[in-house]
Computed example of a mutant assay.
Amino acid sequence: MNDHVTSDPARLLTVFDREMRERARPDGPGARVERVGDVVRQVGATVHDWNGVVWSSPDLDASRADAAVAAQVAHCERLGCEEFEWKLYGHDRPADLGARLSAAGFEAEEPETLLVAPVADLATDVRLPEGIRLRTVRDEADVELMARAHEQAFGSDGSRLRHQVLARLREDPEHFVGVLALAGDEPVSSARMELYPGTGFAGLWGGGTVAAWRGRGVYRALVAFRAGVAAERGYRYLQVDATEDSRPILQRLGFTALTTTTPYVYRPARP
């Protein structure tokens, strides 16, 4: 991948689509990725794993799109998934694919912005506010602290996060980095990084901070810490699906917006 490609957002998006979507790797132990017709999807190994479509053919027309959507609904029903996500990007085709997903029973959640930055362009010096220290996640006690910070920052249940991080630490720690921000012994923020070997990309996830510590640079410090690890391990790009809260911070740090991504989630009716 040459510098000319990576300085052009449109061409970088093409590389991202190929490496991270069409050639997607499973996001956890036991999961598998399948290419079926016009889509690439992940099939999880347990009830805690993510199931969904990560890529669809860029030349989908209306009839093929409807057939692909119907096939994924049938796949979800057959597997007995509690939910199945179609990860729709802003440039995916046909242009009304979101409407077609909605018509098939998928529900759109809040859109996020796909941001990418060359690791070499990012600051890696970790500047922490007074009273905060960082610790990498290494064992079950750390995972519990990570989940607690997540629950307090986002107001959501951390059960899936607990399961996923424990599985990564147990079965694939080489391609996972978890980090805690602690005030004394109390977790105030947590974040993780997924390393995708062979792609040049690493993904940043989490980073939510409890309300009392927001606006003090904790989030920026977690980004810098993970950028430093990515640089040490030879990864060229960091990728983030950013909420509207984190997008402006990341753009100030040097990330470029490439497109949007919207989760469309199908939840089968249960008797």
Rank of each mutant, 00 (worst) to 15 (best):
R18Q: 09
E19A: 10
M20R: 07
M20K: 10
M20Y: 08
R21A: 07
R21D: 03
R21Q: 14
R21K: 07
E22Y: 02
E22F: 05
E22N: 02
R23F: 08
R23A: 12
R23N: 14
R23C: 09
A24D: 06
A24C: 09
R25F: 04
R25D: 11
P26M: 12
P26T: 12
D27T: 15
D27C: 12
G28Q: 14
G28H: 14
P29R: 15
P29N: 11
G30A: 13
G30R: 13
A31I: 08
A31D: 13
R32P: 05
R32S: 15
R32M: 12
R32E: 04
V33W: 07
V33G: 04
V33T: 07
V33D: 09
E34Y: 08
E34C: 09
R35T: 04
V36E: 14
V36I: 12
V36M: 04
G37L: 10
D38Y: 05
D38N: 08
D38P: 02
V39D: 01
V39M: 02
V39P: 00
V39E: 00
V40H: 02
V40E: 01
V40Q: 01
R41F: 01
Q42M: 14
V43P: 11
V43F: 05
G44L: 07
G44D: 04
A45P: 12
T46D: 10
T46F: 15
T46R: 13
V47S: 14
V47R: 13
H48V: 14
H48E: 14
D49Q: 12
D49L: 13
D49F: 08
D49R: 09
W50E: 11
N51E: 13
N51Q: 05
N51D: 15
G52P: 07
G52N: 06
V53S: 02
V53C: 01
V54M: 04
V54R: 04
V54K: 02
V54G: 04
W55T: 13
S56W: 07
S56N: 11
S57P: 05
S57R: 04
S57G: 11
S57I: 02
P58M: 06
P58T: 02
P58A: 01
D59G: 03
L60T: 00
D61T: 12
D61V: 09
A62L: 12
A62V: 15
A62W: 07
A62G: 10
A62F: 03
S63Q: 13
S63G: 04
S63W: 11
S63P: 03
S63Y: 04
R64T: 03
R64V: 02
A65C: 02
A65Q: 00
A65T: 00
A65Y: 00
D66M: 08
D66K: 15
A67G: 02
A67N: 02
A67H: 00
A68L: 00
A68K: 00
A68H: 00
A68I: 00
